[in-house]
């Protein structure tokens, strides 16, 4: 399926071929071979909940491609605070723009917007459900680093139960035949729903409790935050958070060549001594949000093909 006019709501709507197109286009943009493709186009960026970095990344992507941004940064400044329904807001704004980017705390809000809008909708996060552009930039960063995704061994560490980022990443990596190792405390392990999906796709994965059990052939260690709120007992949180803290020693224990990724913001789950190692690619990963979001907006508005 082509991209022009298409809404981007969930990884579950996408094929490996779609993801290849997004990664290839992102690469061309990053290399400076595509410019000005949003000229004359207006993109509505509507954030019904605050997420400063994601919003800035989208707005920068639009402006760097020559497009114009309209929208709002938080619900207090939107007409929703005056009681207008979500559906009415979408029905109105669809007439003001060529595509819309939506962040909303309710799961399924972006899908609902795409049912109503006559322009493409890009999901910039719908509650605990999906945040597909995060996954696109993760995939692009890995492809950029290894030249391929097929056969990579990815370790995912941290809160795998509630982390939508790792759920989408697992869904996407399954399409490319990656191997996966899930590293988490028992209470925060990957949900059965995702594991069932992986088994059905014939993907090999295993679950371990500590980073050092992941073996020495990991290509990527994808770290996510463990939130204090998930633990009733503060002492239990401290001990789990400590044993899941990635340090330069952790990297050496994993064979020394593993690349470390993180969706950011981090708190203290990656020690600062890791920042100086060539293994740390999380800031490049965040910067790659620009070309991937440029690529997506160019593709869905028909500015790029």
């Amino acid at each position: 399926m082509g991209f022009a006019g298409r809404s981007i709501i969930s990884l579950h709507d996408m094929t490996a071929a779609d993801l290849e197109v997004i990664m290839d286009t992102s690469g061309r943009i990053k290399a400076g071979r595509e410019t000005g493709f949003l000229q004359g186009r207006t993109i509505a960026v509507m954030f019904f909940e605050a997420s400063t970095r994601t919003r800035l990344s989208f707005e920068s992507a639009i402006q760097r491609s020559g497009g114009t941004v309209i929208g709002f940064a938080n619900p207090a400044s939107s007409s929703q605070s005056k009681g207008e329904s979500f559906a009415d807001t979408i029905s109105t704004v669809t007439g003001y723009c060529d595509a819309m980017v939506i962040r909303h705390p309710v799961e399924g809000s972006a899908r609902l917007a795409s049912d109503i809008a006559s322009v493409p909708v890009i999901n910039a996060g719908d509650g605990a459900n999906q945040h597909p552009t995060q996954t696109f930039l993760d995939l692009f960063t890995m492809k950029e680093s290894f030249g391929r995704l097929e056969g990579l061994h990815i370790g995912m560490l941290g809160d795998l139960k509630y982390g939508r980022t790792v759920h989408s990443l697992a869904t996407a990596m399954a399409m490319f035949g990656a191997r996966m190792t899930f590293i988490s405390p028992h209470t925060l392990q990957m949900p059965d729903m995702i594991k069932r999906e992986l088994s059905q796709a014939g993907v090999s994965f295993r679950e371990v409790r500590q980073p050092e059990e992941a073996g020495d052939d990991l290509d990527v260690l994808y770290v996510t935050r463990i939130q204090r709120e998930r633990f009733g007992d503060p002492q239990e949180y401290e001990s789990v958070a400590h044993s899941f803290r990635v340090t330069a020693d952790t990297i050496r224990g994993l064979g020394g060549r593993v690349l470390v990724m993180h969706p950011l913001p981090r708190v203290d789950e990656i020690a600062e001594d890791v920042d100086r190692l060539p293994n740390a690619i999380y800031f490049r990963q965040a910067h790659n949000g620009i070309p991937t979001r440029q690529a997506l907006l160019g593709l869905v508005t028909g500015g790029l093909s």
Binding site: S85, F86, V106, G108, L112, D115, G127
Partner: peptide, 20 residues
């Protein structure tokens, strides 16, 4: 059953597809 689902909060139609 998800209280934070658009079908329960934003008035989206209730639609399900067979998963298993």
């Amino acid at each position: 059953p998800n209280p934070n689902c658009a079908t329960n909060v934003l008035g989206a139609q209730r639609v399900f597809g067979l998963a298993s």
